[in-house]
């Protein structure tokens, strides 16, 4: 018994100890080389450009150091940036939860034992192909992605009767984009579907035998198992919305790049500001979805601790009883 324990300790230190962690660098080797070659220099240059006035001429790139002028101009003089950033914020707050929840529901539907689920799964992959390409623009041009306009008028009227003015436009816009939102959730659906298939069916069967309803199974088994993918999908949706060509801020950056008056330096400082905001949002999403996971683990730990305490108490009682019996 003792031998086994020392062997296990040995194995543990071999596989998880400090020495073992050198193997990480072997697995990371290609990625680290890639970082060194393709990331460090562009990142450094992008930071440098954001403090410069950059002119791309026929002979090369001419930089003139102007300090924080670019950033100052973005926040103080450029009205467009703040306006677009605000509308992006509202878009994120409204659309990220809707997309993630819709994708989850769709994946749950596709995961049930229905006849013809293979066909449905294939159909639900269509948005992945369509959205990432220029085809979506063509479809939007045809009006295939929005609800008919007469309906939208009614929706706007209804909403404006009980909501403040500044919320009416984004929400009625949401209704007109409802179908577009369905299109945006293709990748999320596939990811949810993949993780849902990995959930242990025995566990669900056991819960069913114990009398759990489908509702309870969803909240107690399915949801904890896919929590990490929910976080991943929320992050992906956020970054997709932030960097897609339909985003106003990205359009501003692209436009500034080509303009002679603003130039590439201004565009890259705008890009940095935009990614700073996205990073803050990312942190918020992380805290919101991660916090719950921690609470769950905490509860688990607490229960384990409690069990251990009881076990110890029981042993003490047994020992006491034995002593008394011996006496």
């Amino acid at each position: 018994m003792k031998e086994n324990k020392t062997l296990l300790k040995k194995v543990k230190s071999r596989m998880f100890g400090r020495e073992a962690n050198w193997y990480a660098y072997i697995f990371l080797l290609p990625w680290i080389i890639g970082i060194a070659f393709f990331v460090i220099r562009p990142l450094a240059l992008a930071i440098y450009y954001s403090f410069c006035e950059v002119n791309i001429t026929a002979r090369g790139i001419v930089c003139e150091w102007i300090g924080f002028d670019n950033f100052q101009e973005i926040w103080v003089k450029d009205i467009n940036f703040i306006e677009q950033e605000l509308s992006f914020l509202i878009q994120v707050i409204l659309q990220v939860p809707i997309i993630v929840i819709f994708a989850l529901l769709a994946a749950l539907l596709l995961n049930t034992n229905l006849k013809g689920k293979g066909i449905f799964r294939t159909i639900f992959f269509l948005p992945v192909i369509v959205v990432s390409g220029p085809i979506i623009n063509e479809l939007q041009g045809q009006g295939a992605t929005s609800v008919a306009s007469s309906d939208q008028m009614i929706v706007t009227q209804v909403i404006s009767s009980f909501l403040p003015e500044w919320l009416v436009e984004p929400i009625s816009g949401l209704f007109s984009q409802l179908i577009l939102i369905l299109w945006y959730s293709g990748i999320q659906i596939i990811m949810f579907l993949a993780i849902l298939q990995k959930i242990d069916l025995n566990m669900i069967e056991a819960a069913k035998i114990d009398g759990a309803t489908g509702w309870e199974i969803f909240w107690k088994i399915t949801l904890p198992a896919i929590r990490s993918i929910i976080l991943l999908n929320a992050v992906y949706t956020l970054v997709y919305l932030a960097n897609s060509g339909t985003n106003g801020v990205i359009n501003l950056i692209s436009a500034a790049m080509l303009k002679a008056t603003r130039g590439y330096g201004y565009a890259s400082s705008m890009a940095w500001m935009h990614s700073l905001i996205v990073l803050v949002l990312l942190g918020l999403i992380f805290l919101m979805l991660k916090g719950k996971a921690d609470a769950f683990l905490k509860k688990q730990k607490k229960i384990a601790k409690e069990n251990k305490r009881r076990e110890r108490q029981r042993r003490r009682w047994e020992a006491d009883a034995k002593k008394r019996a011996d006496a």
Binding site: A46, I56, Y264, H274, V278
Partner: peptide
């Protein structure tokens, strides 16, 4: 997170 426009050039 960084838009590809920033590192493109």
């Amino acid at each position: 997170v960084l838009p590809s426009q920033a590192t493109m050039v």
